[in-house]
Simulated assay, not measured.
Amino acid sequence: MNHDQYPDIYIKDILRSTRTIALVGASVNPERPSYRVMGFLLRKGYIVHPVNPGLAGSQLQGRTVYGRLAEIEEPIDMIDIFRAADALPALVDEILALDPLPKVMWGQLSVRDDAAAAKAEARGIKVVMDRCPAMEYPRLVG
């Protein structure tokens, strides 16, 4: 996949088929993009599981915060990543250890690592990087 450009239908299909999202890098600060995007996704009807080891066990926007992806007990359709790009290689290893695997790995704005993306894609995971679902949803889904 060319991660410089995505066909609209690729992103639209992901947003329409996704139901459960693990939001890695969730924040309690309402000024942080991860907080605002989580609220947006919840309002659009997605089930969002916030992930942040420093907040594990607490509540965020009415949802229990998990310390790690492996702690989430239901299958995840999409991993939405609010972490620095240099965290992606280790995070991909954590994602690839999940059973079942998620369908999508989504790196937020400025979150891009082509080698990590290739590793996920080699296992059948769709990858989007340097995009925000809260920006793409209104543009493509309505």
Rank of each mutant, 00 (worst) to 15 (best):
1 M>R: 07
4 D>R: 13
10 Y>K: 01
12 K>Y: 02
13 D>A: 12
14 I>P: 02
16 R>W: 03
19 R>F: 08
20 T>Y: 06
20 T>L: 04
22 A>L: 12
22 A>M: 12
24 V>K: 00
25 G>K: 02
26 A>K: 08
27 S>Q: 06
32 R>V: 09
33 P>E: 10
35 Y>D: 05
35 Y>E: 03
40 F>N: 01
43 R>L: 06
45 G>E: 05
46 Y>S: 02
46 Y>W: 10
47 I>M: 06
49 H>G: 00
53 P>F: 01
54 G>P: 01
57 G>I: 11
62 G>D: 08
64 T>E: 14
65 V>T: 09
66 Y>L: 10
66 Y>R: 07
68 R>M: 10
68 R>S: 14
71 E>M: 03
73 E>P: 05
74 E>Y: 02
76 I>C: 09
77 D>T: 12
78 M>Q: 08
79 I>L: 08
81 I>G: 06
87 A>N: 13
87 A>L: 11
90 A>N: 14
91 L>F: 12
93 D>V: 12
93 D>R: 11
95 I>Y: 09
101 L>E: 04
102 P>W: 04
103 K>E: 14
105 M>I: 13
106 W>H: 10
110 S>Q: 14
114 D>R: 14
115 A>Q: 15
115 A>D: 15
120 A>S: 11
120 A>H: 03
121 E>V: 03
123 R>G: 09
124 G>V: 13
128 V>A: 01
128 V>I: 15
132 C>P: 02
139 R>M: 08
139 R>N: 03
141 V>H: 00
142 G>R: 05
